[in-house]
Design a binder for these strands. Sequence first.
DNA 1: ACTTTGATTAACGAAACTGTTAAATAGCTA
DNA 2: TAGCTATTTAACAGTTTCGTTAATCAAAGT
Lengths: 126, 126
Amino acid sequence: MLNNNSDRLSEIFGALADPTRRAILVQLTQGPTTVGALQTPTPMSAPALSRHLKVLERAGLISREVEAQWRRCRLQAAGLRDAAEWIAEYRSFWDDKFDSLDAYLEETGKDSRTNSTRGAPDNDTD
Amino acid sequence: MLNNNSDRLSEIFGALADPTRRAILVQLTQGPTTVGALQTPTPMSAPALSRHLKVLERAGLISREVEAQWRRCRLQAAGLRDAAEWIAEYRSFWDDKFDSLDAYLEETGKDSRTNSTRGAPDNDTD
DNA sequence: ACTTTGATTAACGAAACTGTTAAATAGCTA
DNA sequence: TAGCTATTTAACAGTTTCGTTAATCAAAGT
């Protein structure tokens, strides 16, 4: 587990940190789209939009296929899965019903325990 | 659903887009910690670390309590939950075994099937 | 009071991000 | 070939981010 993993997550989260880019991802859930079609719901110059797409592509969240003079953008959700998996490591810290021991104690009517006995996510940084 | 939600997500994802900050969150899963204790695994000047903590605090991912001359940092996972929920809207796009009916069956303990009735996430941008 | 310790703010510079307009590229179409 | 459309790249400016060192603030110990 080297630095690569860490930088990849940084790129994914960084790509998601912009409302315009998240809106693009939302739009792409409706199916592959040309850049021009994305421009309508995203009031922005073509070059600006193009750069957002490049950020999303570098993060692996979309792919682009050349099709005549169009570029067809397609959602690539694997990156989102990776992000979701990273965050899921923390689920026991916000979801009391997660963590099997907590669930057991809850069912048996006992109280929950403190943070320190919960499983910690792996550190993905060098 | 106004712009607020969107900006909050931007701050959360932006905070997660840095390996140092993710490492801090990992460390905080071990329990609340003073800033000084965070500095050991994070080779960085104190001011730099302090600013990372401020970013995490503004994103709502940590809280800081004053305790004598120390600031005790505590993981606040609600923000991670919000991020996870946003991403989870896309789950059907990476997980073929997931759709709303599958989710229902999963919750009710029944087996999962495969299906292509995918739902689109809500657009959280203005 | 004076010093030490823990942490933040101030000030600064380098690098990255975001948007713009103008120019370039590439593929259709006439 | 010329011209139109779709998209990207170049060049530029404003803002933000990230790190540094120096200075400041606040609490504790002596």
